[in-house]
Design a protein around this nucleic acid. Structure first.
Lengths: 227, 227
DNA sequence: AGGGGAATCAACGTATACATTAATGAGGAC
DNA sequence: GTCCTCATTAATGTATACGTTGATTCCCCT
């Protein structure tokens, strides 16, 4: 068997710019609405305008920024209405993914990562460690997407997670303890284990719809109209 | 009230390149697997490499091409497995859109375009005019997406239509007369008119799943492994 | 003749140059 | 003081230049 070549070619400056800018947005270092000129970014990143422009085009396609002709690259804010749209998409696609996973009848070994993530959520909740909880939650969802056998679907879901990342992080400590979420995950895993695709899909959909309602309500209650 | 300014600024060369290349791909002028060097494209389009590169980045993000470092921009082929993934996504999102439309309880006037498109499909089918049928079919689906109140969801769907456009056109004349499709559309409209979101979603899903099965089977039967 | 390696070439990634044009501000008329 | 016009400036969109590097070719050795 041929050994896998790991050819990790040095990433291009354009990729570096893309990653750097994306990270600043996700980490909320650049607040929504923040604008930066191409030249300024180039200077800051130690490169010319060309790769910065290319990164901007990619980020604009992914819906994280907007390129405003004379005002540079602008971090797009996310409104409650955007959140509604995003969660409609996530409900739809993630519940489909859950159905696909259930239909594939995964083995106990294949299900283990999902169960471990669920257990970690419970443990984190007992310790009142919300960051660990959020991490385990993300691991659960990511794992499920990777198991669904549809890479294009997973890519869309990851993109919309990115777009809604800031809002989730901001509301993490404003919402009640996520006991429901944790319970719902267990129910989803059970449905998948039974191979009950309909139930798995329905439960996932309910899970995301509840999360969406709570999140949007929180944003509005706290007057966070542009996150 | 201030008059709406319609500032139709001349499109940039990058936009022109984007549109030109996209059109060639959708029209199958450039077959799947076709490659073109940036320089050659620039020459052909009468511009420099810069806007061509930017168009390439956008098209790559949209999944229509791949940028292979020393071999230029390559038109991505679509395999039967890709088609399965694409139709899983379309089934999921379009059925969600149908549910959203049904929940919004559109008026008779708002439903009219959908019904007209359905009638046009029937008429075209009677005339055995498959091109007109496909056009009306697309109009139906596009109309529904525009009515769903979720622009981001619609954008994803449009993108995946693009990706699967060639395969649909190629199989248009290989499949049996699309009587089922036409009937299914009418059933969807009826469910929407009743405000029965569950039925509208279920029927749409069935509609897409049948179309997907037929299409993939056709591709495989005709050995079209790379469309 | 076949294979290995060096020389050549060409496409790309990035930097830089330049023309265009929107934004800013000064200055004058009322 | 306010509004309008025009000059100035600066950021962009595009073109061009250039160094790097993967691919190809040719040649020599066996």
């Amino acid at each position: 068997m041929a050994r896998q070549q790991v050819q990790l070619k040095a990433e291009s400056m354009a990729d570096a710019a893309y990653r750097a800018i994306r990270q600043k947005i996700l980490d909320n270092v650049w607040a929504p609405g923040y604008q930066a000129l191409e030249q300024a970014l180039a200077l800051e990143l130690g490169m010319s305008r060309t790769p910065v422009r290319e990164a901007g085009i990619r980020l604009a396609n992914e819906g994280l920024v907007e390129v405003v002709p004379r005002h540079g690259i602008r971090v797009l804010p996310v409104s409650p209405s955007d959140m509604r749209e995003i969660y409609e998409i996530l409900s739809s696609l993630e519940s489909t993914a859950a159905e696909l996973v259930a239909k594939a009848r995964p083995s106990a070994a294949e299900l283990e990562p999902l169960e471990k993530a669920s257990r970690d959520m419970e443990k984190a909740l007992k310790r009142d460690d919300l960051d660990a909880w959020a991490q385990a939650d993300e691991r659960f969802h990511r794992q499920l997407m990777q198991m669904c056998g549809n890479a294009k679907l997973a890519a869309i879901v990851f993109n919309f997670w990115d777009r809604s990342h800031r809002a989730r992080m901001l509301t993490l400590r404003l919402r009640p303890r996520p006991e429901n979420s944790t319970r719902e995950h267990l129910a989803i895993v059970q449905a998948i284990r039974r191979g009950d695709a309909t139930a798995a899909g329905a439960r996932f959909r309910a899970h995301r719809e509840r999360a969406s309602r709570e999140l949007i309500e929180l944003l509005q209650r706290h007057r966070m109209n542009q996150v």
